[in-house]
Simulated assay, not measured.
Amino acid sequence: MSLFIGLMSGTSLDGADGVLAIIDEHAGYCQVDVLAAAHVDFPADLRHLLLTLQHPGADDLHHEALAANQLATCYASCVSKLLTSAGITPDQVTAIGAHGQTIRHRPALGYTRQTNNGALLAELTGINVIVDFRSRDIAAGGQGAPLVPAFHQQLFAGDGLRVIANIGGISNISILSPRGHLDATTTGFDTGPGNMLLDLWINRHRGEPYDNGGAWAATGAVHMPLLTALRGDPFFQLAGPKSTGRDLFNAHWLDAHLARFSDLDNADVQATLVELTATTLIDALIAVAPDVDGVFVCGGGACNAFLMMRLQAMLAARGSAATVQSTMSIGVPPDQVEALAFAWLALRFMAGTTGNLPAVTGAQGTRILGALYPA
């Protein structure tokens, strides 16, 4: 029995998601049995600090070190909740895969930065900790992201052509080969903003952390000139491999576009941002997988009923009969998928097995990903 913990905190900056799972691999397939799942909210001061670190500022090295320590403490709290819930002791867990919090992602300049303190996390938990999964892929000429398609292929491949749409702060898609077609190539890439701009806008104007179910967006109308301007960003015209983050899609980017328009209704902006997320994802999907049999959504976007409805409508408008469902319909709750992916990457590291897909990231070859802090 191989027990692994996966910890993920994404661009939405809401907190840390964790899973404790039994993971088994055989013949190119993966089986997971989740024993416990947990979430730890980020304290307001940590969230503020992480947001501040997204942009250059005074004494950044000091502030990043403090953020890394506090993040490791949050991660340790999540691990404690997982162990207590499952009745498991630290010595029974092979390793923790901890993604860290992305504060810079500049693959074109040869680096990415996921702040974390793996040494502190190992001290606090007494478990092997594996961190810094993205840097080796970038060193090999890749984007360092997305890393989840390899896991998606092993866990979610079916009889037909499936797409996994991971809609967190940023959206990415994994195009999965049918199970058993081992000669086919799994592909995937970031498609653009997911919930990040939606969360930013509702927090700014209504003081809420997110648009629950997309209810506010549903009251608005899409502003087509704004949508056209947003979709004009060069990122959307790039072919994969490609990745992005808050370095591009942030408050400054949105405000620069909004400055070209006057007297926009706030709910209309929210509806337009939903349309941006949905249309850029579906455009990218149709371009590479026009014959998709099913689209399965994970991440916070799966909980946005209005966004899910728009995704389905756009697929139908492009002549596709594929349905849009959450990954719950194929056995995994949508809020557990990314954390499970980093538990799987920890398993791959401990087994000395590669974790990236060059067809996805553009790396020169497969690589073992991560760096170990022993217990």
Rank of each mutant, 00 (worst) to 15 (best):
A267K: 08
A267C: 09
A267T: 10
D268P: 06
D268V: 08
D268R: 10
V269N: 01
V269I: 04
V269P: 03
V269A: 11
V269C: 07
V269Q: 05
V269Y: 07
Q270W: 07
A271H: 07
A271G: 06
A271Y: 07
A271K: 12
A271C: 15
T272I: 01
T272M: 00
L273K: 05
L273Y: 00
V274M: 13
V274Q: 02
V274E: 01
V274R: 06
V274S: 04
E275R: 13
E275Q: 15
E275G: 09
L276E: 08
L276Q: 13
T277V: 06
T277H: 00
T277M: 05
A278G: 11
A278W: 09
A278R: 11
T279Q: 14
T279F: 03
T280Q: 00
T280F: 00
L281G: 09
L281C: 15
L281D: 11
I282L: 15
D283M: 06
D283Q: 07
A284F: 00
A284I: 03
A284V: 01
A284K: 03
A284S: 12
L285H: 02
I286K: 03
I286E: 02
I286Y: 03
I286N: 06
A287D: 07
A287F: 05
A287W: 04
A287M: 05
V288A: 14
V288L: 13
V288W: 11
V288C: 12
A289V: 06
A289K: 05
A289P: 10
A289R: 13
P290K: 01
D291I: 08
V292I: 08
D293S: 08
D293L: 03
G294I: 14
G294A: 15
G294F: 08
G294L: 07
G294Y: 00
V295H: 14
V295T: 15
V295Y: 09
F296T: 00
F296L: 15
V297W: 10
V297H: 11
V297F: 13
C298I: 14
C298F: 00
C298T: 15
C298L: 13
